[in-house]
Computed example of a mutant assay.
Amino acid sequence: MRIDEVRDAAHRMRHHVLNMGEAQGQGYVGQALGAADMLACVYADQLSYRPDDPKWEGRDRFLLSTGHYAIGLYAALAEARIIDAAELDSYGCDDSRLPMSGMASYTPGMEISGGSLGHGLTVAVGMALGLRHQGSPVRVFNFLSDGELDEGSTWEAAMGAAHHQLGNLVAMVDINALQADGPTAGVLRTEPVADKWTACGWFTQRVNGNDVEALLAAFDEIAGRAAPVGTPAVILCDTRVGSGVPLLENREKAHFMRIDADEWQICREQLTAGYQEKAGVDA
């Protein structure tokens, strides 16, 4: 079943994230756990790609604007067999192809480098426009965070996408209500965020980003509207930092987590127990 396949992929990706995080003892683990369902939907269900040819011209493009979420994308790339799962053990190490912030020059399947936020959607707009000029049917997916909506360049790009009628562009916003300086609402209030995207000319949906069924329904709605010339689409995804691991869901200062050595196995056990419980309920 399609929903079960994506849920299974998200579960395996969360385990990959915990294993990579343990190698460093810290990292952007909370964001990656929270976004796992979003990334699993994209890589297990939506993207057209060839695992053995990451530069295939006919691939859909996935742009990780939030470079610090790279740990989550590496888990997705391993699940998609674009990188070998064994390579995840090198995460964040010297000479690794998997640095802590995404670098397109290092990692197969990483379309853009991510550092300072606010650039991804601008690149995505140019990419979607260029692909359309080439007559390509390829779609462009851009992953953003709610903190990134603080950046004016994001809204300039949003208006530009609507102006150029980029029906081949899909944005996903991880709304986890947290950024480096504290709760998003306290740093710069962006609500009513759905109204803002709609006002910029986008087809806008807002869903629970940790609900695979709701995410897939949103993607299906977008796929039915996709066209080279049309309306760009955005899915606003409300997520929970550390989703699937109660120990981390309730942790303070969760933007960049430092996790004690004896806690990693607890995290894995909680993740497995929660998944098995949900699977039993659904059965």
Rank of each mutant, 00 (worst) to 15 (best):
A75R: 01
L149A: 08
G135W: 02
L248G: 06
G120L: 10
T107F: 05
A104K: 14
A128S: 09
G244I: 03
A80I: 08
D282G: 02
A214T: 07
M110V: 15
A199T: 10
M38G: 04
A177D: 15
G114Q: 04
M1C: 08
S105R: 15
F203L: 12
G186S: 10
I259F: 04
C200W: 08
K55W: 13
G230K: 08
L169M: 12
L121T: 09
S101G: 03
L33F: 04
G130N: 12
G280L: 10
D260S: 13
G67Y: 11
G280K: 11
P99E: 06
G244A: 07
G280M: 11
L98P: 03
T154K: 02
A214R: 07
D89Q: 14
D8E: 15
S136N: 06
L215P: 07
G280S: 12
Q205T: 14
E277S: 14
G25S: 08
D60G: 07
C41K: 00
S145C: 11
A261R: 14
A75M: 03
A199R: 04
A227F: 11
M172N: 01
P183W: 08
V6R: 00
F143W: 12
L166P: 00
M103R: 15
E277N: 13
W155R: 08
D262I: 06
S105L: 14
R240F: 05
Q276E: 15
L149T: 10
G92I: 05
E151R: 06
G201P: 03
D260N: 14
Q26V: 00
L248C: 08
P183I: 02
G34K: 01
R61D: 06
A227L: 09
T184P: 09
T154E: 01
V245K: 00
I71Y: 03
E5N: 13
D8V: 07
V170Q: 07
G182Y: 07
V207L: 04
H11V: 05
N19A: 13
Q165T: 03
E148D: 11
P99W: 02
Y275F: 15
A86T: 10
F62Y: 14
V138K: 11
G126Q: 05
G201E: 05
V207E: 01
D52F: 06
L121G: 02
V140W: 00
L129T: 07
N208T: 06
T198S: 14
Q24H: 03
A158V: 09
P232G: 09
M13H: 06
V281M: 14
G27S: 03
A124Y: 10
I266P: 06
I175Y: 11
A80V: 02
R50H: 13
G25H: 05
Y43Q: 05
E277G: 13
Y91C: 03
T272Q: 13
G21I: 01
D95L: 11
L247M: 14
V170N: 03
L33M: 10
Y43R: 03
V281E: 14
L63N: 06
G58Q: 13
L73F: 08
R132P: 00
G224E: 15
T154D: 01
V207D: 01
F62N: 04
F256Q: 11
I235E: 02
A226S: 15
T239S: 09
I83H: 01
A78W: 01
